[in-house]
Nucleic acid binder design. Structure first.
Lengths: 187, 187
DNA sequence: AACAAAGTAGACAAATCGGTCTACCTATAA
DNA sequence: TTATAGGTAGACCGATTTGTCTACTTTGTT
């Protein structure tokens, strides 16, 4: 792992747990044992580092969840794979992600206003809705496929919120119980 | 309005928009025109001020939404009142709240870890689930009433998340569409 | 009238922030 | 061999942070 990757990974862990503004550059350096100059040769500023961290988490999260969903060809099985994946995440059975501490993008988004990172966080969420809509459009006519994608995205966000702040680690199962009847009409 | 209340209100507005750690004490003082010493006679620290701000928002939000829900005696009408209220909130038709910028408690919670404010944010969310469960227990047997309360809370959190980060101001309507069939079994 | 509480204005301290810089040390590739 | 890139250690800068303090003024109550 390059120094650059080490910095991104450690910065993500600290940002995810404590928030972006609570974590100083010096804390990241102390944790990694990397010199300050090295950080600033790879990243022009803390903000640029944060953008790289967002891209890192985005890639990791999406390839994980899309990997699960892409293994299923049927619409209902695909959606179930998503909620089963969330259930694994909430209960710390996903090694590739960190121990569950809510949604990183929701957290980062909360600390900024009218900022570039807000757009990056939005794009992550939008990418998931887009994937859902694209997959569902093979099994449902429009505009049902699109509406269903939005319903499922709402259930997914609700599950994450309830699992984290609501401390309900079973929230993914509850969400799937509500999602299942929505899938019935077609498929 | 006392100086103390002015400080709480302005601090809330700034924290809500920009995040707690992004807003300095001096910024709150400049906005209110109040002297620094006055702030520290009312609040021992920024943290104590934040706790007062959380209590302020908690009281405002709960009395608003419970006020809407308590006007309805039927279970379905009560729940619809909640989602109608959320729809008004998302679309800035609620004067008593601020222009919609997501959930304050979710945002504050994101900036802290293993901290007293995390507990206060949790308590706010729990109070709403508790109210829902109590009202529903008059119309549904246990454990259905309790499960329904958790389902509705998940839909509410999902709607807030989608309305804010997902930029879907119609999310409350979508959530109510999913909530409505859940109410049918009894009532 | 007098006293206590609450207010203002702002200097100040100590710590921390992001970011720059110097001086030196590898490692690799031309 | 030698140049170039990437690395370390850490002093340093200016700005900003929370919080304290002094000196003075206003306000309300007894």
């Amino acid at each position: 792992m390059t120094k650059r990757d080490e910095l991104i990974k450690t910065a993500f862990e600290l940002f995810y747990l404590n928030g972006v503004h609570s974590v100083g550059i010096n804390q990241i350096l102390a944790e990694t044992g990397i010199a300050k100059k090295t950080l600033y040769t790879h990243f022009a500023s803390k903000e640029v580092l944060l953008e790289a961290v967002i891209a890192y988490r985005d890639e990791r999260f999406r390839s994980w969840i899309f990997g699960l969903m892409s293994q299923q060809s049927q619409a209902e099985a695909m959606v179930k794979a998503m909620f089963d994946g969330l259930d694994d995440w909430f209960n710390d059975r996903v090694a590739t992600l960190m121990p569950f501490q809510g949604c990183f993008f929701v957290k980062v988004n909360a600390e900024f206003l009218n900022h570039r990172v807000n757009e990056l966080c939005f794009e992550h969420k939008q990418a998931i809705v887009d994937y859902l809509a694209a997959r569902l459009s093979e099994h449902y006519p429009e505009p049902q496929a699109n509406q269903l994608a939005n319903q499922l995205a709402l259930l997914k966000e609700g599950a994450i919120a309830q699992a984290y702040l609501g401390k309900d680690r079973q929230a993914a199962k509850l969400a799937w119980n509500m999602a299942k009847p929505l899938m019935k009409p077609a498929d």
